[in-house]
Design a protein around this nucleic acid. Structure first.
Lengths: 197, 197
DNA sequence: ACCTGAACACCGTTCAAGT
DNA sequence: ACCTGAACACCGTTCAAGT
């Protein structure tokens, strides 16, 4: 055996990432494995390692697709031209909806930890930054550019924390309504303090 | 071999949890394994399974110790009798300090996910509830009991989100000061909105 | 050059069989 | 009753050897 060349290196990457996305969605991060991805695309694990280098790189590429999907999902319905608190609430609701509908894929974004010696690739960090800027944009007219940068980080990390603990069942609350009531409270009061203070 | 009875069932649990804590602190959750715990206490994996039942139960018991340590750490220096925002800021600073000093053990609290069919044991949920009540207490005189319950969840999940993303390097910020500046902003403005609004 | 197959050093889980 | 040892079905990673 050997030398199949059914696919180019790029095609191989693509079908592996696609199969990986499906596996992740079905089985969650704990059920995910490079070997199973290899099986699903009809290649050996060895081939996957030739193409991606290591396990973390495989996961990183799959998570990158999730990040793209998340960004696209967040920006849907942006035609409405909401402002201030309403714009942030809309983003928070979309974030929760995405996390709920794609729980395994969304979870993997945070369950996967790179080994400390392996820094986040720049192309991945940029995707994260783009999501932050979506939160920052509606804040800028409210509090100015400098404060908006800071406030976007506070709000986004907080909304993430509420969704993460809430969906994991660690907040002593039930259902979607409760998560939304927490994020609404956060956004209303934080922005009130920020603009009134 | 077989029948050693060097330890009672309870002693076995105890030394296993202790060894597990150490392993977790050294190697992190990804480097943790029941087999290695067994090796460290000089018993077989089989024995560990007889005593705990399964892998998740082992992790749960180890995380419970971390939760106890966290609660103890949070309540240190409570003699100062801080009130309102100052009390919450103190808790947030302690939370971040604990997460930083015990990163692997703290991380495992959230990296470990129970299989969906296995609900959180009541004794574990109670430990989580006790931590929430520590946040709730200084809020009650400010906004009343009912609002305090809700606000404690908002604040605690938000502080957690900021620490989690911040310590994982996903907030585009550097150092302890930055995390504190985010949690301070959160607490000041959220409480301002809550009491003024 | 591309890919395989096998090896290595691990996992969680189960359970017959020893003492 | 208590504990072991081995088995089973998996992992990530590496790399000589085929085509």
């Amino acid at each position: 055996m050997a030398r199949r060349s059914d696919h180019t290196r790029e095609q191989l990457k693509e079908i592996a990432i696609l199969a990986g996305q499906e596996l992740l969605a079905e089985s969650g991060f704990s059920g995910f494995s490079a070997r199973e991805v290899a099986r699903r695309i009809g290649y050996t694990v060895g081939t996957l390692y030739h193409v991606f280098g290591n396990y973390d790189a495989i996961v990183l590429h799959i998570n990158a697709v999730t990040l793209d999907d998340l960004e696209a999902f967040l920006s849907e319905g942006r035609g409405k031209k909401r402002q201030g608190a309403a714009a942030i609430k809309h983003l928070a609701a979309r974030y929760e909806a995405f996390a709920r509908r794609n729980y395994h894929r969304w979870s993997a974004l945070f369950e996967h930890r790179l080994p400390p010696e392996m820094p986040l690739p720049a192309w991945y960090a940029e995707k994260v930054a783009r999501i932050f800027s979506a939160v920052e944009a509606p804040l800028t007219p409210l509090v100015g550019e400098e404060k908006a940068h800071h406030a976007a980080r506070v709000l986004w990390a907080s909304i993430h924390g509420i969704c993460a603990l809430g969906l994991a069942g660690k907040l002593d609350i039930v259902g979607a309504k409760s998560i939304a009531s927490l994020t609404d409270s956060l956004i209303d009061n934080y922005l009130a303090g920020l603009t009134d203070g």
